[in-house]
Design a protein around this nucleic acid. Structure first.
Ligand code: SF4
Length: 520
RNA sequence: AUGUAG
DNA sequence: CTACATAAGGGT
């Protein structure tokens, strides 16, 4: 089955050296074909599978990739992400260590991993967007799996790469003490500041980092050396010590190094696959399956915004967003006001507000136009050059157009409430929690809260930490006329409390729109 | 380790 | 020689 693939991949084998055909008992096959629990996927699959397997393999892997992508876009924190995905992978695509599972089953699961990766390459090689997304998610998966290998599995995998790693002895480390400390000072101190350095000593979160701390840390770290031409980019960016032609690479850089290689290699291969793809269509049995993959899942759930491909006719745009401010909940209103006042918002505020704007329908181009205008016009505002250099990336990142290309979802109230509280200079968060009653009153009046009795109720709710209830109350008061009209016309209105700023916005817009439609 | 000052 | 402070830049 799938002779077309087979022929093609046999042709490509030249690049990769000899391959042994499999035959004989599963045990031998595993050792020959899949000696490691992780792989750079240099060799395409050689054996045949049924159409059914082809499809389920691919779909299971795709599920994993989509779930990773979704969790990332919801802003799930790193350790939760690892925990959840580890479970899901165990269900959908487990990879056991050697000798912990019957050989037949072990072979089957390693094949599944292998096949599914190559099938998805076919589905994801078609466009730049898809390739980038695929690479970034596969690389994440690679890192996740690598970090869960046992020590000896890691060692074995590294050895198999035929890169001449050599472990550095303690005495050699001592000789290079000064250089090691100097070049890794930052890496290590960042680790300290985030309190994420595990290990033998009592590493806790710490503000001031000392050379002694750094040295302690490097001493505990396994360091390998290898001829520097194997890691030209590490050397070029002066991330490692080089001495007598050898680069000294600490273990914490090793995984990134592998992941980088993995990503680069995958990118090359995807380009090659794309060029070879037209010939594949001859096998008509594959077409529907691949189409299904790309139509069903990829376009809708996995793909985010297209760079530059935005239509200008979105309802909310850089020019008219002001007119929509009356639908903003307090948190968004506060951010908008802060932005007006300072021509600037700090990091978390930018994040919160950009995502909110994304939620109300502003595309990346309009959004960028909007932010640029807000940041660069008015007294004391920055220059366009500065904006482009220091902030543009940030906004594009929020739209999934840079870096890991995660299309983040607008934050919910719970998410907003779970972030660090704003300081004096910041405007993010939830006003019902973060503003004292005086400034909250000012804000609410600006939003149109006239009635003192209602205002008092809202302040009380805020005091008793029922922020969303306060927010819902404000919504009901400000929209009471429209709500009554809707009810009057027999239209149902939502009773549930506000749990998301964009929900607040959408309800307001919806109630008004419905009336227009009814009358017009 | 680098910088600054004496 | 001593004392002090500072430590980077790419894209969770
Ligand atoms: S309750 Fe939610 S929507 Fe309302 S202001 Fe607070 S964060 Fe915004």
């Amino acid at each position: 089955m799938f002779k077309k693939i087979k022929r093609r991949t046999q042709g490509r084998r030249n690049f990769d050296g000899p391959v042994t055909y499999l035959s004989g008992p599963a045990d031998e096959t595993i050792l020959k074909e899949y000696p490691d629990r992780i792989s750079f996927y240099k060799l395409p699959p050689m054996t045949e599978v049924t159409l059914d397997q082809f499809e389920t393999y691919a779909i299971d892997r795709l599920k994993i990739l989509i779930e990773i992508s979704n969790l990332q876009s919801q802003g799930t924190n790193y350790s939760d992400l690892i925990k959840l995905m580890t479970e899901r992978i165990k269900m959908l695509m487990p990879l056991h260590s050697l000798n912990t599972l019957e050989p037949d089953l072990l072979l089957e699961e390693r094949r599944k991993d292998h096949y599914s990766h190559f099938i998805l390459r076919l589905a994801f090689c078609r466009s730049e967007e898809l390739r980038k997304k695929f690479i970034s998610t596969e690389t994440f998966l690679f890192k996740l799996r690598y970090s869960q290998l046992t020590k000896s599995e890691k060692q074995q995998f590294i050895n198999s790469l035929d890169v001449p790693w050599e472990e550095v002895t303690d005495s050699e480390k001592d000789e290079l003490k000064a250089e090691l400390i100097a070049t890794h000072f930052n890496d290590v101190s960042i680790g300290f500041k985030q309190g994420i350095l595990g290990g033998s000593s009592n590493y806790i979160q710490r503000k001031v980092v000392d050379e002694k701390d750094v040295w302690e840390c490097i001493k505990d770290e396994k360091v390998s050396k290898l001829p520097w031409e194997n890691v030209p980019d590490l050397v070029a960016s002066r991330k490692v010590v080089v001495r007598k032609g050898d680069a000294y690479v600490p273990e914490f850089l090793q995984m990134n190094l592998l992941a980088n290689e993995f990503g680069k290699y995958l990118e090359e291969q995807l380009l090659i696959t794309m060029r070879l793809l037209p010939g594949l269509d001859e096998d008509e049995r594959l077409v529907p399956v691949l189409d299904n993959l790309s139509k069903g899942y990829i376009s809708s759930e996995f793909q985010g915004f297209q760079d530059g491909g935005e239509q200008a006719d979105s309802e909310v745009n850089a020019g008219n967003v002001k007119q929509f401010e009356k639908y903003f909940p307090a948190c968004a209103r506060r951010l908008a006001d802060g932005l007006d006042e300072h021509h600037h918002l700090r990091y978390t505020g930018r994040q919160q507000f950009t995502l909110f704007l994304k939620g109300i329908g502003m595309g990346p181009n309009e959004s960028l136009k909007f932010w640029q205008r807000m940041f660069t016009s008015g007294p004391g505002a920055m220059t366009v050059e500065k904006f482009n250099k220091e902030y543009k990336y940030n906004f594009r990142h929020s739209y999934g157009l840079e870096g890991a290309r995660i299309n983040y979802k607008p934050w919910s109230c719970t998410q907003i409430l779970s972030k660090p509280k704003p300081n004096k200079q910041e405007s993010h968060g939830c006003p019902y929690r973060d503003l004292h009653s005086e400034s909250l009153t000012t804000l609410l009046r600006k939003m149109g809260m006239k009635d003192d009795g209602n205002l008092q109720k809202v302040l009380e709710l805020s005091d008793s930490r029922e922020y969303q209830a306060a927010c819902t109350k404000v919504f009901e008061v400000l929209n009471s006329a429209t709500i009554q009209e809707n009810i009057g016309k027999g239209l149902s209105v939502m009773e549930a409390p506000i749990t998301h700023p964009n929900d607040y916005f959408n309800r307001g817009v919806l109630y008004e729109k419905r009336l227009e439609e009814k009358t017009g």
